[in-house]
């Protein structure tokens, strides 16, 4: 494992996605935008170990995985800008990224990475022995039938799949304890899939767990499920309402609370007890969002890795500068005709 190489991947991905966020804010990228900032350690720890012939099934948050797989960043950015010379001719956008050459495919349907990775792995068993397939998804997808069915199928067919769960504890507004009972590890284990819990903020840990899982899959040992915890620095998507409230409470909070209070007070409806229970749920969502884990630097995988690499500040600075130069060049190349 080369921590410096992993750091460079993560740093470039972060800079790239920060640039994407700015372009989105300027209105040059349309629709929703799901950034992967905060999950770079998970993506880097896995994707950096892939070989030609390995496949990737990615969710709606797939930019980092595509970047780190070595897919042309200029084409990627142009895709988001909706250009003819984008990765998919501007037809897909960031939720529908594809690269046939890399066997990399994303989807905006939650859980769809499961069956897709299983199919990629099945093809690998016949056509590309010792190749593996990765599925990236969030913890919200773990209640989606097709993903659970895929875990089962991967187990019974002993397929070389690595199920990579990026668990940030939020599926838009739904928190895991509201959406599932029992322990995720037991659930996965119960389906006959090897389960490993990983600190998804620590690229070292992800890389090591990933290395074992990939090696196991390549040598016929079947599927592994890596449960990585992380924090999405921009929430579910850019401009997510509850994060806006947290960040600009004076402007945003009244927009949310005034209609809620008005509705709370309207004649007809639930008893006071029921209404209070409803209010309590709304407040608890707000409260959970406001206790923002983003403020703790330890929840940023890049800051965490930097602390380890500070042993060589000169080299760190150099890697940072190189990343900045590279991403700046990508930006100017991608934007060349847009701003003209």
């Amino acid at each position: 494992m080369d921590l410096w190489m992993l750091y460079a991947l993560m740093k470039k991905s972060r800079l790239f996605e920060e640039a994407v966020a700015q372009l989105w804010q300027r209105g040059l990228i349309s629709g929703e935008m799901h950034l992967g900032t905060g999950e770079e350690a998970i993506i880097a720890g896995i994707v950096s170990q892939l070989m030609p012939g390995d496949a990737m099934a990615v969710d709606h948050r797939g930019t980092a995985a595509f970047l780190m797989r070595g897919i042309d960043p200029v084409a990627l950015l142009r895709e988001m800008l909706g250009r003819e010379d984008g990765l998919c001719g501007g037809r897909g956008g960031h939720m529908h990224l594809y690269s046939k050459e890399h066997l990399a495919a994303s989807s905006g349907i939650v859980g769809a990475a499961g069956p897709r990775a299983v199919g990629f792995a099945l093809a690998a068993q016949y056509l590309r022995p010792a190749s593996v397939a990765i599925a990236f998804f969030g913890e919200g997808a773990m209640n989606q039938g097709m993903l659970l069915e895929s875990l089962n199928l991967a187990a019974v067919w002993n397929l070389p799949v690595i199920f990579v769960c990026k668990d940030d504890g939020w599926a838009i507004i739904t928190q895991p304890q509201e959406a599932a009972r029992g322990d995720m590890g037991e659930r996965v284990h119960g389906l006959g899939v090897n389960y490993v819990a990983v600190d998804g903020l620590d690229v070292d840990a992800v890389w090591s767990a990933g290395s074992q899982a990939i090696e196991r899959a390549r040598t016929g040992g079947g599927p592994t499920f890596l449960h990585n915890r992380c924090v999405h620095l921009e929430g579910h998507f850019l401009g997510y309402e509850l994060l806006r409230v947290t960040r600009r409470p004076f402007q945003e909070l009244p927009k949310l609370t005034v209609p809620v209070l008005r509705s709370f007070l309207r004649k007809g409806g639930g008893s006071l007890k029921e209404r209070l229970a409803g209010m309590k749920m709304i407040l608890s969502k707000l409260w959970s969002t406001m206790r923002d884990p983003r403020e703790d630097e330890n929840n940023d995988p890049i800051i965490r890795l930097r602390q380890r690499l500070m042993v060589d500040p000169g080299r760190l600075n150099e890697v940072d500068q190189n990343a900045l130069t590279e991403i700046s060049a990508v930006l100017s190349a991608a934007l060349v005709e847009v701003t003209r």
Binding site: G111, V260, S263, F264, G270, E274, R275, A277, G278, I282
Partner: peptide, 20 residues
């Protein structure tokens, strides 16, 4: 999130979220 106004008026027994 989407029906929070109904949630505040009718309570969680009648307005509930689901897993995906």
């Amino acid at each position: 999130l989407l029906r929070r106004n109904l949630l505040a008026r009718f309570g969680p027994a009648r307005v509930r979220g689901t897993p995906i």
